[in-house]
Computed example of a mutant assay.
Amino acid sequence: MKHRQVLEMRKSTNRDPTNNHAASIAVLGAGGLGMAAAKIIAKKKEMKLAAIADKTGYVIDIDGIDPELLENKKPGDIGKRTDDAISEIIKSSENFDGIFIALPNLTNRFIPDIVSGFAGQGYNGVMVDALKRSQAVEMIFGLDNMLNDAGITYITGAGATPGLLTCAAAIAANSFMEVIGVDINFGVGVANWESYRATIREDIAHLEGFNLEKAANMTCAEIKEELDNRNGILHLHNMEHADDVLLEKAGIVSCEKVKVGGVVDTRNPRKPVSTTMTLTGRTFDGAVSSHRFILGDETTMAANVVGPALGWMKAGLEFHARGIYGVFGSAEIMPRFVL
């Protein structure tokens, strides 16, 4: 981990997440992952959901949002209607200890621009994202000085992959003198693609013949037609996935030695294949071997993304309380378990 300057703490007087109260969390995004975050936070003692927003509406309640208000809500059907819900969260950001970004990222600049908006507003807290694309994560690292100066502790690539599997690779690397390669192969099953429209749209952008712009401009009918043509199954190979950038930043292995692919079934909640991370390396005595980390098939995409993201949020809150600011990758920090 690169050296971080420890600055004088700049905590606002009305919030201190280390002082035995639940940290106030705002969730940006109310699709499948955002709603899963709301449900998981509701089961935690150390965190409370203080805001949630999507592109058309938002809810803010500093005392904690009643989970029943969000039951059975669909994207585009939450809270106060507005064409600029994210700006409403930014304007109220002084009330939040942490921000979890669960938004689609169909232009690489989208989330970095939102993060810059929080810094410009004077937000002083923790931010965690579940970004997947290497270019977008590199843009977040490019905001390091700005976020350091703003007093923001930011952890990027903090989902499942990148995130949970990336961190597992960073730990596994310690058995070896040299890492020869990292191979991540994921399986995702969802009963209905419309529950995870943004995630599926991003996956389609990785397919041969598609890109971010093309996927972003597809109508829901066009996406459904594409899925029908593939019997609901997406086979993804050699993806632009930020595990490579995060592992290189952490000093584990160079980008070109990290491979990511997977299979997504958009019609069946059961995973089409098990999700694995395989790290191959050479030991101090010359042996070549591999460590493999396998996720349980019963754990859903939402569980494997949101749970670790909140774990990194808790780690970020600890760092922030110690006055440690700037951008960190998920492979640089162990997540903490949220009670």
Rank of each mutant, 00 (worst) to 15 (best):
F110I: 01
A136V: 03
D129T: 12
G125Q: 13
P112A: 02
S134N: 06
V126P: 14
E138A: 05
A119E: 14
N105C: 08
A136L: 03
I114V: 13
S134D: 13
G120C: 03
N105W: 05
Q121L: 04
S116R: 11
G122T: 12
Q135S: 09
D113Q: 11
A136D: 04
G125A: 15
I114G: 03
G122F: 02
S116Q: 12
L131S: 07
D113H: 08
T107C: 04
I114Q: 06
A130M: 11
V137G: 00
Q135N: 11
A136I: 04
G120E: 14
Y123C: 13
G120I: 03
A130I: 14
A130W: 02
Q121N: 13
D113S: 12
N108W: 00
F118T: 12
S116K: 14
F110G: 04
Q135M: 08
A119G: 13
Y123S: 12
N105S: 10
N108P: 00
K132N: 07
N105T: 04
V128Y: 03
K132I: 07
N108T: 09
N124H: 15
N105Y: 05
G125N: 15
G120K: 14
I111A: 02
S116T: 12
L131D: 01
F110N: 01
Y123Q: 12
D129Y: 06
M127A: 14
F118N: 15
G120T: 10
V115F: 05
A130P: 01
N108H: 05
I114C: 09
A130F: 08
R133S: 08
N105D: 06
I111D: 01
Y123L: 11
S116G: 15
V128A: 11
R133D: 05
Q121K: 14
F118Y: 13
D113M: 09
L131C: 04
L106F: 08
D129C: 08
T107K: 06
G120R: 15
I111G: 01
T107I: 04
A130K: 03
G125P: 15
D113T: 07
P112D: 01
M127I: 15
V126S: 15
V126R: 14
A119S: 15
V115S: 01
E138H: 02
V137M: 01
M139T: 00
Q135Y: 10
A119V: 07
G120H: 13
Y123M: 10
Q121F: 03
G125W: 00
V126L: 12
R133Y: 12
I111F: 06
D129I: 08
R133M: 07
L131K: 00
E138K: 10
A119M: 09
V128P: 07
V128E: 10
E138S: 07
